[in-house]
């Protein structure tokens, strides 16, 4: 009987862990910058969705391209959606995969981790390992990361006339706080 009770309790516990194993957020910040010789372009979205499953050490992020605001003019934003990202055809960018390091999620503190997964932008998949900072506060998981995306990697051509105004290397910063679901 004692053994059974133990099994029963462990089951309950594992159920609890699994249910509390997923941390999510739907208001993460994504900022990107293009630093070309003649023009600096900057845009931000605060609608990034994210999820981390600590029981399996995997993650997923997702952002609607049309949610980016900023730019140097409304026309530039329109061009971004219409001509470069083709937001009608490819409405979202995603990144999902696994965290390489094994993390003791019960231990509070800051960790530098490598997230390995598939980054999909403009419908083109790229396998990437992205270095990120992860902070466990006990209540939530804070994630921040800076990385670059090459437009040429995602088949986003730069017309010759804007070569001096648009960088091929786009700097991206993300920041989010994930809470238990």
């Amino acid at each position: 009987m004692k053994v059974l009770l133990l099994i029963f309790m462990s089951c309950c516990l594992s159920a609890a862990v699994v249910q509390h194993g997923i941390y999510t957020s739907n208001n993460g910040t994504v900022n990107f910058r293009s630093e070309a010789p003649f023009e600096l372009i900057n845009a931000t979205s605060k609608e990034m969705k994210g999820a981390v499953d600590i029981s399996k050490n995997n993650f997923a992020f997702r952002i609607r391209i049309r949610s980016f605001e900023g730019f140097n003019s409304p026309l530039q934003r329109e061009h971004f959606n219409e001509n470069y990202m083709e937001s009608e055809k490819y409405p979202e960018a995603t990144f999902s995969g696994k965290i390489i390091e094994t993390i003791n999620y019960e231990q509070k503190g800051k960790y530098t981790i490598r997230a390995k997964g598939i980054l999909t932008i403009h419908g083109v998949e790229q396998e990437r390992i992205i270095k990120s900072e992860m902070e466990l506060t006990g209540k939530s998981i804070l994630i921040s990361s800076s990385f670059t995306v090459l437009l040429s990697d995602h088949q986003i051509p730069i017309p010759r006339v804007v070569k001096e105004k648009l960088a091929n290397e786009i700097k991206v910063d993300i920041k989010t706080e994930l809470l238990p679901k």
Binding site: I22, A60, S96
Partner: peptide, 8 residues
């Protein structure tokens, strides 16, 4: 649980 599908 597929995180990607969940977010989608």
């Amino acid at each position: 649980i597929d995180l990607n599908k969940m977010l989608e």
